[in-house]
């Protein structure tokens, strides 16, 4: 659906995006993760053709975004980081304008109403956009991207600045949209990527740091996180001696991570082993290695090859 080849953007001597290549397939919900300033927005702006690349190409449904821009852009609905809203128009006037601007073939009235229904703004269509709350403004921005039913949606930090309830609603909406559209979304909120995306790409300093299914980046399931009172070396040797434990290590915040062997439940064994040695176990929980940890690991390593490979099988 979207093919990105050796995409590079330079501003003078500064390289904002450095030689990124990837393919995004139909009906994939791709999460773009990275710290602020990593090059997420720049990459999205190049995919949508708002910015040109210094070198490299972007093909959208086979059409080059720079040499065949109209055909490529027609397939994309784009919600930039700051929703491009005219605050002095009503939501209805604005969406009617975008409908015409994008030359949507659908009937204007019914199509705008249908989209408004989907993003939940039917009740505020006739209010001035400038008077709407941030959450509603974000939804009007999303409605704008959905107009014309483009096969690809590109959403730049769609949940930024919303309250928790609104965030949940927008995420549900995006997940639903993922069933009919190819979605690229950027975020620096990691659980969001985990919840919404089928595939996660991490960007650091303009480079691709990792690429794979969300699960592959968060470590294997069954890993335990334990809080144990005791000297770390002693605790680790105790843990490693337990049957069924393949490895154990400290996470750097005073907790211990225990990796059991495939299919083993080691919780009871760990409890007794620690009790016998009189090193109290005060907490034990399942540690689906969070994306946060994986993220920090990858970021500090400066790119991980293993995670990169995981995505391409």
């Amino acid at each position: 659906m979207i093919e990105i080849k050796n995409l590079t953007k330079k501003y003078g001597n500064h390289t904002a995006v450095d030689n990124i290549s990837m393919e995004i397939h139909d009906n994939e919900v791709l999460g773009f993760l990275g710290p602020n300033g990593a090059g997420k927005s720049t990459t999205m702006n190049m995919i949508t053709g708002f910015l040109s690349a210094t070198s490299g190409t972007v093909l959208v449904g086979g059409a080059d975004i720079l040499s065949d821009p109209l055909r490529a852009r027609r397939q994309i609905g784009y919600l930039p980081e700051i929703p491009p809203l005219y605050k002095d128009l009503t939501a209805w006037e604005y969406l009617s304008f975008v409908h015409g601007l994008k030359r949507c073939p659908q009937n204007k009235k019914t199509h705008v109403q249908e989209i408004a229904q989907r993003v939940g703004i039917s009740n505020i269509l006739h209010r001035l956009i400038g008077n709407l709350s941030k959450g509603y403004q974000q939804r009007v921005g999303l409605a704008q991207a959905l107009l014309g039913d483009p096969p690809i949606l590109i959403l730049d930090e769609p949940t930024v600045g919303l309250d928790p309830a609104q965030i949940v609603e927008i995420r549900d909406l995006i997940r639903e949209l993922g069933q009919r559209h190819t979605v690229i979304l950027s975020t620096h909120i990691l659980p969001e990527a985990q919840l919404v995306c089928s595939r996660v790409v991490m960007i650091q300093n303009g480079r691709l740091a990792a690429d794979g299914p969300a699960e592959s980046l968060t470590g294997s399931p069954g890993r335990l996180c334990a809080e144990i009172r005791g000297a770390p070396e002693q605790v680790l040797s105790l843990l490693r001696a337990v049957r069924g434990v393949s490895d154990a290590w400290e996470d750097g915040e005073g907790r211990f991570l225990i990796q059991p062997e495939e299919g083993e439940d080691v919780r009871e064994a760990v409890f007794y082993a620690l009790a016998e040695a009189r090193t109290p176990l005060v907490g034990l929980r399942d540690s689906q290695g969070t994306l946060e940890q994986a993220f920090l690991q990858i970021m500090t390593k400066g790119g991980s090859a293993e995670a990169g490979d995981a995505g391409h099988d």
Partner: peptide, 14 residues
């Protein structure tokens, strides 16, 4: 200034 040029310049118009 309002970043609405992102809408105009990414829409399928010249």
């Amino acid at each position: 200034r309002m970043k609405t040029d992102q809408l105009l310049l990414t829409a399928p118009v010249t």
